[in-house]
Design a protein around this nucleic acid. Structure first.
Lengths: 123, 123
DNA sequence: TTGACATATTCCTATATGAGTATGTATTGT
DNA sequence: ACAATACATACTCATATAGGAATATGTCAA
């Protein structure tokens, strides 16, 4: 089996760095395609194709006005990603604590008289 | 050009659903490969290959002990993903507010006498 | 209508999968 | 030494890109 389609979900869609750039660019407000091309310096067909992928998974929305199409990021669609990653937050916090604790233990070995915290000594 | 390698960064690595499952499974503590195979019901070679991808981008760590290899999720490596998605948080909050406001405006149209907030009327 | 402008689509190609199967490599127990 | 156990790697195959070039579609303006 090949890799899952880029249009299969937000995870696959944002795996492409240029699509992430486009999302960031469009986050603060809608812009016509030409602005993306001019600002990010990608080929126009490339931008169109990336937008198609992003649109297919709901990461961007379009508003047509004459010959312009205004795209904007649909931040809501990024939330599942944020939440999935967030389920690991307590683990990396735990890891940081462990690292801190080990560092402090090393400290106490090197400077046995000192406490492992940076609390001022009581005079 | 083809799609970027799955081993090019965490974004590409977690695009694969099975790899996300493995990461979640290994988040709470280290497990031997056999446990992953037994619990998630993937083929053993498939698990090994996914672990290889995850390891190459630092999403998992290994500890070898005899003929067992204990893998664990390195949550720290998921943080950049969480933070990237987090940069959109204020936008989706803004979107939710807009939706709420529009809904309330609709409400006031339907029930002109009522205020757009749920504040009790002063008697 | 005709031309200019803004976007989208098509065609091509090199490359990278992921699943399945078979096989290789350590390491342990007897 | 030998068999069993635990993982990793190699091979094949169907499929999905992403970029580049060329072209198509749609809309406005004179």
């Amino acid at each position: 089996m090949a890799r899952a389609s880029t249009t299969s979900d937000a995870f696959n869609a944002v795996a492409e760095p240029r699509r992430r750039e486009i999302l960031s660019y469009l986050a603060s407000g809608e812009r016509p395609v030409g602005d993306i091309v001019a600002s990010l310096k990608f080929d126009q067909p490339s931008v169109s194709k990336h937008l198609r992928v992003l649109r297919s998974v709901g990461l961007v929305r379009v508003r047509c006005e004459g010959r312009h199409k205004f795209y904007r990021t649909n931040a809501e669609a990024i939330r599942p990603l944020h939440e999935w990653a967030g389920t690991f937050e307590r683990f990396w916090q735990h890891q940081l604590l462990s690292v801190k604790k080990r560092a402090e233990e090393q400290m106490s070995k090197l400077i046995p008289a000192s406490d492992s915290t940076d609390t001022k000594e009581k005079p």
